[in-house]
Simulated assay, not measured.
Amino acid sequence: MCMMLPPLGKNNIQNTLYECFSLMREMNDTRGFESYINYVYEDFLNLFDKSSFRIVEGYPDYIYNTSDLIKLAGRKYEKKRNEINYFKKHYTASFEKFSPRHIADALLMIDQWKREKIHESNLSNHNEAHYQYSLVHEAEAAKCAIIFSEELGLQGAIITIDGCIEGITLGEPIASHTASVLIEKTNNTFCGMPQFIYQQFCSSDFSKVAYVNAGEDWGIEGLRRAKMSYHPCMLAKKFLIYEKA
């Protein structure tokens, strides 16, 4: 058991944290797991005595100006524009809002994405069990988000080519000024599709918010390069809180 977010509120946080860890210890200590609180924002650290706990900095979230992701203006986005233009020129694609009627085909697309990623990892000799295990769980998380998108309040979009779903993205507003893009899966056969669906989704669903949060890179170098290529306006620090031994 862990806390995926810090406790809400700003009052009596010190005692609240002690109580949270007490509850987690009841389950974790007998099973050999370490208790922790995840996704702690930086300002939260000012609400309690940090000397009583062990604070570990996690991977930051990548934050972008929404207008940059939509306009892709200037030389720094020239490659993105070229990729999108290539996609539009070479493929007859349809961009649509995601709805419950797309669920079944979207799940098939995620299964295909998983198979292709595992095949790629085998070809590159990057077939460590941990990596493929992570791919399986990433695919299952995406499928859960698709199935329960309505209950979770997620909005999304798909790209179809020749009547088949070849790309899907899901996100949500998380504040009056910020939206979060949670999932983006595309068929790598179609060059430029990731850039196209990202731009179109931000334009169609999030044009009225100032920022888009694309989440963290989990320490994966390829993902870090991809997120940096969109030139974030800031990296939002996140922390984990552990009890001191």
Rank of each mutant, 00 (worst) to 15 (best):
N46R: 08
T178P: 02
A179R: 00
H137R: 08
L47W: 07
N11C: 05
D205V: 02
T30L: 14
N85M: 10
N65H: 14
E138S: 09
D162Y: 07
D61M: 01
R25D: 15
E96G: 01
F48G: 00
E19M: 13
L23C: 10
S22C: 13
F98L: 11
S121F: 06
Y77N: 03
W113Y: 06
N213D: 15
T169E: 03
Y59P: 01
T160F: 07
E128W: 04
N38P: 00
Q112S: 14
F98M: 06
C144I: 13
D68N: 11
N65G: 06
N38M: 08
G32D: 03
C202M: 02
K238H: 12
R224H: 08
E57A: 06
E140F: 12
R101L: 06
A139I: 03
D49A: 05
S35C: 10
L154I: 04
R115N: 12
D217Y: 07
S204N: 10
L240H: 10
S207N: 11
G163R: 15
R225D: 07
N65L: 14
R81M: 08
H102K: 01
S121R: 13
K117P: 01
Q200E: 15
Y36K: 12
L182G: 03
P6T: 04
I110C: 00
I146M: 04
C144L: 10
L5V: 09
A245E: 09
K89E: 12
G74E: 13
E120R: 12
L45V: 05
D105E: 13
Q112W: 06
Y131W: 14
E151S: 10
P173N: 15
L17C: 08
K244D: 12
I197S: 00
I84N: 00
T186M: 05
T16V: 13
L17D: 07
Y91I: 11
D43W: 04
K117R: 13
M1D: 11
I37P: 00
N28T: 08
F48Q: 04
K117C: 02
R224I: 05
L135H: 08
L23Q: 10
G9C: 02
E78V: 07
L107M: 08
K88A: 06
C2R: 09
I84E: 01
K114R: 14
H102F: 12
A139Q: 01
P232V: 08
V209S: 02
T186F: 09
A236D: 10
F87K: 04
L240R: 10
D68L: 09
T92A: 07
E116Q: 06
L123I: 06
A179C: 07
S207F: 08
L135D: 01
I110R: 00
N213L: 05
I220W: 00
I55N: 01
Q195A: 12
L123F: 12
R101N: 11
M1Q: 04
C20R: 15
F95Q: 05
K71Y: 04
F148L: 11
E128C: 09
H130L: 10
I55Q: 01
A106Y: 02
C233F: 07
R25M: 12
Y211C: 01
